[in-house]
């Protein structure tokens, strides 16, 4: 019985470790989000005390708990854009399949995280704005980014394996990744209803703690998925090479 490649075995352990860390982090984040974070209600929105200046008098009650899923997912799309850019640039420089696989894995996870962002956002918008969707700049740019992730995957799926597919994947990854700065910047354009930032709405210390834990718990989970998809593609590629040999 031959021993498997030690490098691959190590990456298997890393994948499992990342999954466990991510899962624990995400579950702690969720516990804090649903059990520890207080009901958000700003003072004086009913009748007695005037709202403090500078604090939003907009009441979120329990609805803001969905932000602890929404925000890390949105950050993950940013991470995926960065990885896509890295994968594309490195592939064009080095032409190693590894970088091609990284670009696709980032796009796949970006698609999932983007879908979660859009869905949770839509659910909250229904509560807060009374509608699931409006063509507000932040929402529109996020949808565009999501479509770009989908387009990269569709584009790649339509091509036979080879150099041309690698070029298109890398070029498209590089072209699509600057869409994230656009998403980031979109809240500044025009009069949007999307909250400008998290701390603009929520100032309680418990909420800040929960936000940080949820962010640093959920992002590793998604990074673990990028990693495992990357590993899976690498292994598949190696298998094909081995079969051809």
């Amino acid at each position: 019985m031959p021993q498997p490649n030690p490098t691959s075995n190590r990456s298997f352990i890393i994948a499992l470790a990342l999954a466990v860390v991510g899962l624990i982090g995400a579950q702690i984040g969720m516990y804090l989000a649903y059990r520890y974070a207080p009901t958000q209600i700003s003072t004086g929105s009913l009748f007695v005390v005037a709202p403090d200046p500078g604090v939003s008098s907009f009441n979120l009650y329990e609805s803001y708990r969905i932000f602890f899923t929404h925000l890390p997912s949105a950050y993950t799309t940013a991470v995926c854009c960065g990885l896509m850019l890295l994968g594309g640039v490195m592939w064009l420089l080095m032409r190693k399949p590894f970088w091609d696989h990284l670009t696709v894995a980032a796009a796949e996870v970006g698609l999932v995280a983007g879908a979660l962002t859009l869905l949770t956002g839509a659910i909250w918008a229904k509560y807060s704005w009374g509608t699931y969707w409006n063509w507000e700049p932040r929402l529109t740019t996020m949808l565009v980014l999501w479509l770009a992730f989908a387009a990269l995957i569709a584009l790649r799926a339509a091509l036979p394996p080879g150099q041309k597919r690698g070029i298109l994947t890398a070029v498209y990854g590089i072209l699509a990744s600057p869409l994230y700065p656009l998403v980031h910047w979109a809240v500044e354009i025009g009069s949007g209803s999307h909250p400008k930032s998290f701390s603009y709405l929520l100032t309680a210390p418990e909420i800040t703690v929960t936000k940080n834990v949820a962010t640093w718990g959920i992002i590793p989970l998604f990074v673990a998925i990028v990693f495992v998809r990357l590993m899976w593609r690498n292994v598949n590629h190696a298998l094909e090479v081995e079969r051809a040999a």
């Binding site: 031959p2 298997f12 991510g22 899962l23 998925i225 495992v228 292994v235 081995e242």
Partner: peptide
Amino acid sequence: LALFIVLQALSARKRMAEIAR
């Protein structure tokens, strides 16, 4: 999602064994 990671990792390991074989 975590389960998916584990399954993918397991499937990758199976393929690694296949490569080695």
